[in-house]
Amino acid sequence: MTNKKSIIAIPMGDPAGIGPEITAKSLANDEIYTMCKPIVVGDAEVFKKAIQIVEKNLTVNVIQSPEEGKYKFGTVDLIDLDNINMDELRYGEVQEQCGKAAFDYIKTSADLAKNGSVKALATTPINKESLKTANVPYIGHTEMLEELTNTQDPLTMFEVRDMRIFFLTRHLSLKDAIAQMTKERVHDYLIRCDKALQRLGIENRKLAVAGLNPHSGEGGLFGREEVDEITPGIEAAQADGIDAVGPVPADSVFHQALNGKYDAVLSLYHDQGHIAAKMTDFHRTISITNGLPFLRTSVDHGTAFDIAGQNIASSVSMEECIKLAAQYAPKFTQETID
């Protein structure tokens, strides 16, 4: 059994945020070690301080490569980039050294995944302002990984309990998002969503597309987006062999997916899917970035600067993030989606 467990890299996140704390708390849960072989990529002194803050009985084993890991509960295997001046570290504040360090942890983890040394990444929170202060030219994980892996337009998928949600658009105003809801984009995304589910090992995939307007527009009475763009996009995907239905009114499609009617829902815009997921279970909503050459899961919360360094932050999301990576990693196929 042990040799079948996947190695999961955990970039530590912004050292001034809660990332190190929730990682330490998560790795103090012996269940994690029954599911995978976790490696922290970060700064050893920052992580040792986090262990003290959360009052866990853990020791740090500094390694140079995953082959050196002990993967034993109670001992945290850590690749030390040694890039934080502890005398200058201030919890809960935007700092240049922290923004640069957070990027370095992600880049190192991505390199390990690209060369096959680790099977997946389970990422912790980073801070956009810290990245900007450090002149890191990305606003978040997805944009970084997109560049680091030469991936175009990776898919975001949320998973919470038994519900999976893809997003046709992400960080756009509602007006701009509606302009992106073309039949060509719906068609393309349904094909890509189906392939993404296939890579996760899901068979007999059934997708639903959420409606945009009340009651999915009632045949054009409440808006023509469904009639003119969304339905033709679904029909084009169906013609390509994709098992997709819709548009299904957004006030019911997520409830139906949660109860097993669909394997995933294609949400048309950011808040539509985010609200559905987080109202289901805020702390257990995990983000998966599909389309990369490796598996990546992530917590869906921020660095929580207001409580960093105080042993207040819950590790539930981080634990779920690692567990989901461990669950999908053995089934995940490495080939890049066309």
Rank of each mutant, 00 (worst) to 15 (best):
V54K: 04
E129L: 14
I39F: 06
G223M: 08
L78D: 00
V316G: 03
K49I: 06
A236I: 09
D281S: 10
C98I: 09
K119Q: 15
R199N: 13
T59V: 13
Y105I: 08
L27S: 03
G309I: 08
P11S: 03
Q272W: 05
D30V: 13
K107Y: 13
A196S: 15
K128S: 01
T303W: 11
L266W: 08
M181H: 06
K49D: 15
N204V: 00
G233V: 05
D14P: 07
N85G: 07
L131M: 15
E147C: 11
I322V: 13
D228S: 04
E319D: 09
K132P: 00
A134Y: 13
K128H: 01
E143D: 11
L324Y: 00
G217Q: 09
L190V: 07
T285H: 01
I53F: 01
G302N: 09
F166I: 01
I63K: 06
M181A: 05
T303C: 08
I275A: 12
T123E: 08
E67R: 12
M12E: 09
E45W: 01
G19V: 09
H187A: 07
K132E: 14
G309E: 10
P137T: 02
M1P: 04
E159W: 04
V94A: 12
I307M: 01
A237E: 11
A177D: 10
C98A: 15
A50M: 10
A239G: 02
L81H: 10
A325Q: 02
I322S: 09
A239P: 03
T285W: 00
G92M: 10
G13H: 06
A326Q: 00
L81T: 10
A210W: 09
F254K: 09
D162W: 08
A122T: 02
A101N: 07
R205L: 10
I234T: 08
